[in-house]
Write a protein that binds this DNA or RNA. Structure first.
Lengths: 159, 159
DNA sequence: ATGTATGCAAACCATTTGCAATGAC
DNA sequence: GTCATTGCAAATGGTTTGCATACAT
């Protein structure tokens, strides 16, 4: 897999960022970055914490929060808040921009590609604002919940 | 102002929703809805709470949370989580869809119109998902913070 | 009369903070 | 040797919950 290549690129980028900002290059920081780029998809601090413990790498939650902050700042990670009260995160480097379909019934999140959504419709209209990134969230009912609702309605016509 | 007309429409819609779901039509619920539609822009539970107290209408935060939940469910209010740990809300009825420009330096949020962003680019691509609403969040640096940064950089060339 | 909705206060829990110990430089 | 960073535990604060009371139906 060329995931190794990707990991090297993000590590280099992070190193550069840390150097530029006079931050220390601690093993924790690189381990966290590496771990994030070892798995695809969304994660939250708690799942990250647990999966690093599984890998036998001990970190505190405090350090995870600190490091995520740096990774957000240097654009290697993106943060989402889909509706609950946990923040979820996602790799940002080498990750095509996509929209999120969020089911308001079950909370499940799917991703869909979104071509050049932003470039075509928005970018030219924005004055006096330097864009770093953007996120499109589409809320509704997923197929699974929709089916369940229909079934339920059939069985219990009125409530 | 024809805000009275708008208020009547949302009240009717809410009444219909409450009736359909066998929920009680309490004065608190209508007062909250009315209050929300008396002011434009974003609000959070705390600011709503305080401004209702100012109006001499006593409600508990618990009731605000409960009622907001109903209003979200019937589409009269939309929820945003811009990055901090407070949820902010916004009127949804009669409110043109717009994107949000969120400054990652100062947290300020501006709105911009977004034509038919969704209709043109996304709707046709979504299968097996019933869309209720969508939100576009654009993160970056606002003009004000950008100016400050430049000034700072001039004064302190290196750090 | 019945049971839902309210208000209060306590509980919850993700995130933040303070501080002593560690370790990158 | 310094001082930023870590880890732990305590604090914070938005949101949720439990329960007695009020009130819509």
């Amino acid at each position: 897999m060329d995931n190794a290549k990707l990991k090297k690129q993000v590590k280099d980028k992070f190193t550069e960022y840390l150097t530029f900002h006079n931050c220390r290059k601690t093993p924790e920081r690189f381990a966290i970055l590496d771990h994030i780029y070892s798995t695809k998809g969304h994660f939250d601090i708690n799942s990250l914490y647990k999966s690093m413990i599984d890998i036998n790498f001990r970190v505190s939650r405090a350090t995870l929060y600190n490091t995520i902050e740096l990774l957000l700042d240097c654009g290697l990670v993106v943060k989402h808040q889909f509706g609950g009260n946990v923040s979820t995160y996602e790799r940002a480097y080498g990750n095509d921009n996509h929209s999120h379909l969020i089911c308001i019934a079950c909370g499940n999140v799917q991703e869909i590609k979104n071509g050049n959504l932003f470039a075509h419709n928005q970018q030219k209209k924005i004055k006096k604002f330097t864009v770093h990134y953007y996120s499109m969230y589409i809320y509704g009912i997923c197929n699974k919940c929709d089916q369940e609702k229909k079934t339920k309605t059939k069985n219990l016509p009125q409530k």
